[in-house]
Nucleic acid binder design. Structure first.
Lengths: 249, 249
DNA sequence: TCAAAAGTGTTTGGGTTACACCCATGA
DNA sequence: TCATGGGTGTAACCCAAACACTTTTGA
């Protein structure tokens, strides 16, 4: 009954929720499955973990094979292990999310025969994804939302040079809220994590904006000191009041 | 090479970091391993996951077998899968932490032949635990620290009736900081999550304190409205100033 | 009467919120 | 000259931080 051989009949995989930002919308990279099960369904990119391969290594491999990108922000989120989540056997999956600069991603290399396509996260959440990939996507998205309010990971999604407005749009897309322009700028500037490049946008049909760069050096210093960067959720006061009143019935 | 049979040669386990609070110190329940590998080392309680068993089910089973407790706070934290983490084969482990009222835990049921013992977390972190259990313990402890600042999970560690001072000690033990008594009380009271029981401690050699109870009902209402409960880290201002100056060199 | 913990208010400063108008560019 | 986003300051408010003495009990 409780012999080792009974236990070594399962496999594990990694699935990777790859987020990108096109300047407007938060996106996730999905592949169209070429084979059963769930043939022709959209799915998160993933693969079985090789017997002598670390988990994060596997996640990085999936990412590299699909996007050609290395050294990308990658973080483990949660492990999904419902007994029946995979129709062909007991396969648990470790979910990762990664943040890529969408402009760096060029074309699907041939090793993935399937079609890969960026979907807006909002739309992807409404699709019927393969396996339990809807759960995985939702969990990873929530994790990203939480993360982005506490740490400046948003920069991983932007090109090296960006405007404050783009940065704000990114936060708005991830947090799914509107932010006040002046307060946002004050807050970001006061974090001292941006380098003013003294460069301007060019060829835009409106007043050109200043370009900034993320100051990784300085961030590491802060981080080492255990500093935290909360970006408050900006819940309107009236809403807070209303909730409070509701509760104090 | 890439045949399924190669992949279905691995196993997975759950390991459970069981936290308790004795009114003074944050504790973790460790077992003394009776068999190799790591015979006689202290280890986190854990077990292989049965082929047709969910992950959380397995974690709950470990908890039940060891403590006799059911319906305990349990949360998945992280999955550890280094290739060589287990000497007898490829075994990845999904780490959970749980919060138990230490008074509810009576005695180790016989199914676990090993000795189980509460260790202060501080001490446990200095032991040489089996496998990668030091990593696991540290990760779970950090997760608990983060969690406790955002959500009122601390109550899971206290008996049903407790004093404000006990609650404060708990927070101090988890966060490893001192908290200001008056500010702490103001904060907690203002959260409106405590029921004043109109009872007093008895038989204590000092002025008896009021007893309170956690208001789960009200908490669920808050939670449903997406309310958050930050308990700030209480970093002294001067420290913040020093860091800031250091960074703005 | 002593030891030990319970209990309680106010001031100060920093940060968050709310809010509206002028500016620079390309078409 | 118009459309489009870029860019800026201030007042009100709230909350966190700092801080010390009196009260109640059992021994």
């Amino acid at each position: 009954m409780k012999e080792a051989s009974n236990f070594f009949k399962s496999a594990f995989s990694v699935d990777n929720v790859i987020f990108g930002f096109d300047g407007d919308d938060l996106k996730v990279l999905l592949i169209k499955r070429a084979n059963p099960p769930f043939q022709d369904s959209w799915a998160l990119p993933g693969d079985l973990v090789y017997p002598n391969e670390g988990l994060e290594t596997a996640a990085n491999r999936v990412l590299l094979e699909l996007t050609g990108l290395k050294n990308v922000y990658l973080e483990q989120v949660h492990t999904f292990g419902a007994v029946d989540r995979h129709p062909v056997g007991r396969v648990i999956t470790i979910a990762y999310f990664s943040l890529v600069k969408i402009s760096d991603y060029v074309v699907t290399p041939s090793s993935f025969a399937q079609k890969a396509k960026w979907h807006s996260v909002m739309e992807a959440q409404e699709l019927n994804l393969a396996f339990d990939h809807n759960d995985i996507l939702n969990t990873c998205f929530d994790t990203l939302k939480g993360k982005v309010r506490r740490m400046p990971v948003g920069f991983e999604l932007l090109p090296p040079k960006f405007t404050l407005t783009k940065l704000q749009h990114l936060y708005e897309a991830v947090l799914r809220t509107k932010l006040d322009k002046r307060n946002f700028r004050k807050k970001i500037i006061s974090m001292n994590l941006l380098i003013d490049l003294d460069e301007m946008q060019e060829g835009v049909p409106h007043r050109p904006a200043k370009l900034y760069q993320f100051d990784k050096e300085r961030y590491r210093k802060f981080e080492a000191e255990g500093f935290s960067f909360e970006l408050k959720e900006s819940k309107p006061k009236d809403q807070v009041r209303r909730i409070r009143e509701m509760i104090e019935n």
